[in-house]
Simulated scan of single mutants.
Amino acid sequence: MLILALIVLGMFVGWMAQLLLGGSTRQVDWTMALVAGIGGSFVGGLIASLVAGDGLAIKPSGLIGSFVGALIVTVVWQAVSKKKA
């Protein structure tokens, strides 16, 4: 059940990152949302939690780090997609 919750939370964070960067005029790329959310949550959330001294507990610093990490992954994904097109 925890894994399912992490996947859903990751997709939500990735969706929020896409909304912030792309606005509501684009369709949501759920593959990008999943990758950005989970990858950004893992890297950004882990780094922010450890820097803030929260450990691996779910705290606001980890959630903010997750969102920032998802934003970074989304920006990189969009840049690579534009280069290929």
Rank of each mutant, 00 (worst) to 15 (best):
A5K: 04
L46F: 12
L4C: 02
K59C: 05
A52K: 00
I3Q: 09
G45L: 09
L71H: 07
I64N: 15
I7S: 05
A33S: 02
V73M: 05
F12V: 13
I58V: 14
M1C: 05
A5E: 06
V28F: 15
Q18S: 08
S61T: 01
L4M: 09
A5I: 02
R26D: 12
I38C: 05
M1Y: 09
A36P: 13
V43Q: 03
G37L: 10
W15A: 10
F67C: 05
V68D: 09
A79S: 11
A52S: 13
G39D: 11
F42S: 06
G37M: 05
V76H: 14
S24L: 15
L34Y: 08
A5R: 02
I47Q: 10
V76Q: 08
V73W: 07
L50I: 01
L46R: 11
I64L: 15
L50T: 04
L63A: 15
G22K: 03
A79Y: 13
G53L: 09
S61M: 03
A85Q: 12
S66V: 01
G53M: 06
F67W: 06
L6T: 02
K83S: 09
I47S: 10
I3V: 14
G45M: 14
V35W: 14
G37N: 12
L6S: 05
I64R: 15
L9T: 01
K83N: 07
M11I: 03
A57G: 11
G23H: 10
G10H: 03
T31D: 02
S66F: 02
W30P: 01
L46N: 07
S24P: 00
Q18D: 04
L19E: 02
G69E: 12
G23Q: 07
G10P: 06
F42Y: 00
A36Q: 14
L20Q: 06
G65Y: 12
V80R: 00
G55A: 05
G62R: 06
A17P: 06
W77D: 01
A85H: 08
A85R: 03
D54T: 07
L71W: 08
I47H: 13
V76I: 15
L63K: 12
G22S: 04
Q18P: 13
L4S: 08
A57T: 06
M32V: 04
A52Y: 13
D54K: 02
G53V: 03
M32I: 06
G62Q: 11
A17I: 06
V43L: 10
S24Y: 11
D54Q: 09
V43C: 09
A79T: 14
G44H: 09
W30R: 00
K59G: 10
I47G: 07
T25A: 14
G40L: 01
G45N: 13
S41F: 04
A57W: 09
K82Q: 12
P60R: 05
M16L: 15
T31N: 01
A17C: 08
M16G: 14
G65I: 00
L4I: 12
I47F: 14
A48F: 15
Q18W: 11
V51T: 12
A79G: 13
I58K: 10
K59L: 06
G10D: 12
W15N: 06
G44K: 01
S41P: 04
V73N: 08
A57S: 10
A36K: 00
